[in-house]
Nucleic acid binder design. Structure first.
Lengths: 197, 197
DNA sequence: GCCTACCAAGCAATTGCTTGTTTGGGATAC
DNA sequence: GTATCCCAAACAAGCAATTGCTTGGTAGGC
């Protein structure tokens, strides 16, 4: 069972497709674009994949599962709420670094894709994501680690946007590492969110 | 010269097109979509406009000119750097409220459009925008109104993203007014940016 | 000799846009 | 008053290009 090498070409094509989806959007990337980038003809893609849809599906699904596994591990740990929040933010920036295409696709095309039954799971995961983050924020407030007068829902959007929008300018291998960016972001953010002491 | 009513139908169609461009992106909106929403046939659009491109062009160009006029006025006023920054942020949130479609289109499609000669002005205006905002940030740092240890470029991105990304969730006529959101955003932000005293 | 990876050709649907024509209401001429 | 003209606004039909995807076949390594 030579699994490791059997999946190679397929994964290669997936990565190429992901990069293009991320750059120009799912709907604005043609199967011929993908094939050209891979050096083959568009019809040949269908030897590997059922459809263009199933390519994004696979990209987003596997990425999200990995990310949530990390989140769950952090939440289940015995750190303080604020420390958990810190870890979750760092894990998210690490995801932007390691899975740049997938994050960009999610940012740009999730709303559209979610209108199809096949991608209904995106909506559920989004809710789960929101519950997890707002939960941590509330716990941190209750623990006295964050200001008590915060509008948690608004802070959630603020935090979420600030983190994920970074995919639009952060480039893996650039001047700042993902964790350095995370450190600076958290510094700026916490000076406003942390209770004064 | 009944100018006021002569331009009405055209403006109506522009607004319809803008809304659709904002919702599903420029490239993913067909001229038939626009025509359907307007209750006419796609060919009839070409009585009013040269092309689909010229519709976005007109939408973005006029909007940006208005916005920059406001920015320039604020910058030219005799307020302190921090007060100017405050005003610029509020003006931006007001723009999200008053020109929701245009902001959304700019957020989503500017990068793509900017690859065409016709939309080269988007790149220039973007540079001008960055200079204006980073200039204000630097002045505020120099004036002692903001922390001196800030990475101004990073703060700029942070600020810019935080403001404009709001177009993805803010809905005119919703619970919070644009200025209320601006106030809360500034509060959260400044507690981290303002020099401690 | 089978299986992975691909090519070659093409189909039905959708795209932006063009062309020629029709409609209906207001200004103008008589 | 009414006949004439005009013109904005729309329709009807279709064209060339592009879209996702299908079908049937081929090359080459294990």
């Amino acid at each position: 069972m030579p699994e490791a090498s059997t999946t190679t070409r397929r994964d290669e094509l997936l990565a190429i497709a992901g990069k293009l989806f991320a750059e120009r959007g799912f709907r604005n990337t043609t199967v011929r674009d993908i094939a050209d980038a891979a050096g083959i003809l568009s019809g040949s893609l269908y030897h590997h994949f059922d459809s263009k849809e199933s390519m994004v599906d696979e990209l987003l699904d596997t990425f999200q599962q990995q990310l949530f596994d990390q989140y769950d591990e952090i939440v289940a740990s015995d750190r303080s709420p604020l420390e958990k929040l810190d870890a979750v933010v760092r894990a998210s920036f690490a995801a932007i670094d390691a899975h740049h295409s997938e994050v960009a696709i999610f940012q740009n095309d999730a709303d559209f894709l979610a209108t199809f039954d096949r991608f209904a799971y995106l909506i559920e995961r989004n809710k789960r994501f929101q519950k997890l983050w707002t939960g941590l924020l509330r716990e941190a407030v209750d623990a006295g680690e964050l200001r008590a007068d915060l509008d948690v829902e608004l802070v959630y959007r603020f935090l979420r946007d600030t983190v994920w929008v970074a995919v639009s300018w952060y480039r893996p291998g650039g001047e700042l590492s993902a964790d350095e960016v995370a450190t600076q972001y958290l510094s700026i953010l916490l000076e406003g969110i942390a209770s004064h002491g």
